[in-house]
């Protein structure tokens, strides 16, 4: 575990906590894409199939359980919670998200490190995570007005990806047999998707004005 990996995990954890905080205390999920949250739940479900068979560390197991639990409870809140679900902007969140899963599945069947069910599902989760943020970004572009917590949530998610790239660079130079093209390419694409958002986030921060995306 290096400092970049830890920073990546912590910003990822913080992003989830910020979102849960918003939903749980303000009882609102305004501006949050249910489609993206459903994709994240599928990402964690398919990636952590080895949760009980492949033990790495207490830290890993606890973090996996947190990400699984939080992603499914966020989906539950938006779909089922009596108050929260009323704040969901259904009309702004029209991305046909399940169509994103097919290309990821086909790609995972053909491009993987080992052709086994667990490995293909793991690879599928890597591909799907790379594009899972798209419905959320489309929704941001539509609503344009972004509240502070939603802005921080997406910023923290992007920061998590950026730290993971630094972690891979660090591991490449410090560990043997550490070449993972699949995760690297998918991870870089995923991080690039946040580029535009980062630009406007830093602009608003620098000029001390409310974050608003251009039409």
């Amino acid at each position: 575990m290096n400092i970049f990996r830890l920073a990546g995990d912590m910003t990822h954890l913080a992003s989830v906590l910020v979102l849960l905080l918003k939903i749980h205390t303000i009882k609102s999920c305004a501006g949050i894409s249910l489609k993206t949250q459903e994709l994240f739940a599928i990402v964690f479900l398919t990636r952590y199939l080895d949760l009980f068979t492949n033990f790495i560390s207490i830290y890993n197991t606890i973090m996996k359980l947190i990400f699984l639990g939080s992603s499914f409870s966020i989906v539950w809140y938006i779909r089922r919670h009596r108050v929260v679900r009323r704040s969901y902007d259904k009309d702004q969140d029209t991305f046909r998200h399940f169509f994103l899963m097919w290309p990821c599945l086909i790609l995972a069947i053909f491009i993987n490190e080992k052709f086994t069910l667990k490995e293909v599902m793991w690879t599928f989760s890597i591909y799907l995570e790379a594009i899972a943020i798209l419905p959320q970004l489309v929704m941001l572009q539509r609503t344009r007005n972004i509240d502070n917590l939603t802005g921080q949530y997406i910023f923290l998610l992007g920061a998590y990806r950026a730290f993971y790239i630094l972690n891979w660079i660090y591991r490449y130079f410090t560990e043997e047999h550490y070449v993972h093209w699949i995760t690297w390419v998918a991870g870089v694409i995923q991080t690039l998707l946040y580029g535009d958002f980062f630009y406007y986030y830093f602009q608003s921060w620098k000029n001390n004005v409310k974050l608003e995306l251009p039409a």
Binding site: I56, S57, N60, W122, N167, E175, H177, Y178, T183
Partner: peptide, 10 residues
Amino acid sequence: ERTGSSKDEL
């Protein structure tokens, strides 16, 4: 530690 596996990442 020289493990070289991306499976220990989240």
